[in-house]
């Protein structure tokens, strides 16, 4: 019994997968409420399916890239739950989840990209082949610098249609597809470490300014 969760975008998503199929998938309704929504969603997913927390055998977590504050909520939750319940944790690049969903639902049939919102007028971006295997990225860049006519999955083309003219497929990663990616080994699995792709904003103090 796999618990899957992703907090790499503005909405939180949680799913349970029993090895054969996705039993339940829940998403938060309010954006940017990762800290509030995630634990209740997990509790609801368990209660709604009658799965006991001790029946879980593994945890899958999206490791981003995504806005840091929300991303960490998912990662620390996955790691801590794994500690308590003594479970393995599998990290998956959140862009890979979107890519596999796009391929398996038939919305792409050739090379494509996934672009998600990186804020600060930038996108997180990765390129995929027709099978949904990542061939480049993820990176973070200005939309204009990576503009393309290829099909683009994710929220990126909705935010920056001038750079990504061909918007297709899912907009946000789904925990149900994250679970499928892990169960079917459709993407590279990572340690549950965040893909920040940016250094922290920090400025060294300038020389002392006199007060008088």
């Amino acid at each position: 019994m796999l618990l899957a969760l992703d907090t790499a975008c503005s909405l939180v998503t949680v799913a349970l997968h029993d090895g054969a199929d996705v039993l339940v998938e829940l998403s938060s309704q309010q954006p940017l409420q990762h800290g509030e929504s995630l634990a209740p969603l997990i509790a609801r997913a368990l209660a709604g399916t009658g799965v006991d927390r001790r029946d879980l055998t593994a945890i899958a977590v999206g490791v981003g890239p995504g806005p840091f504050t929300g991303l960490r909520v998912g990662l620390v939750t996955a790691r801590t739950l794994a500690l308590v319940l003594d479970l393995p944790v599998y990290g998956v690049c959140s862009l890979d989840v979107l890519a596999v969903e796009a391929v398996d639902t038939g919305v792409v049939a050739s090379d494509f990209l996934v672009a998600t919102d990186a804020r600060r007028k930038e996108v997180y971006l990765a390129s995929y082949d027709a099978e949904g295997t990542r061939v480049a990225g993820p990176t973070v860049d200005k939309p204009a610098a990576v503009a393309t006519d290829l099909p683009v999955v994710g929220e990126g083309p909705l935010l920056y249609p001038e750079a990504f003219g061909c918007a297709v497929g899912p907009v946000r990663p789904s925990a149900g597809w994250l679970a499928r990616v892990v169960v079917q080994e459709r993407a590279e699995l990572y340690d549950p470490e965040p893909l920040y792709l940016r250094r922290p904003d920090a400025v060294s103090p300038s020389a002392r300014k006199p007060v008088s």
Partner: peptide
């Protein structure tokens, strides 16, 4: 807070 919730949930 998220870690504490995971502990509460898991325990």
């Amino acid at each position: 807070v998220a870690a504490a919730k995971a502990l509460a949930l898991g325990l």
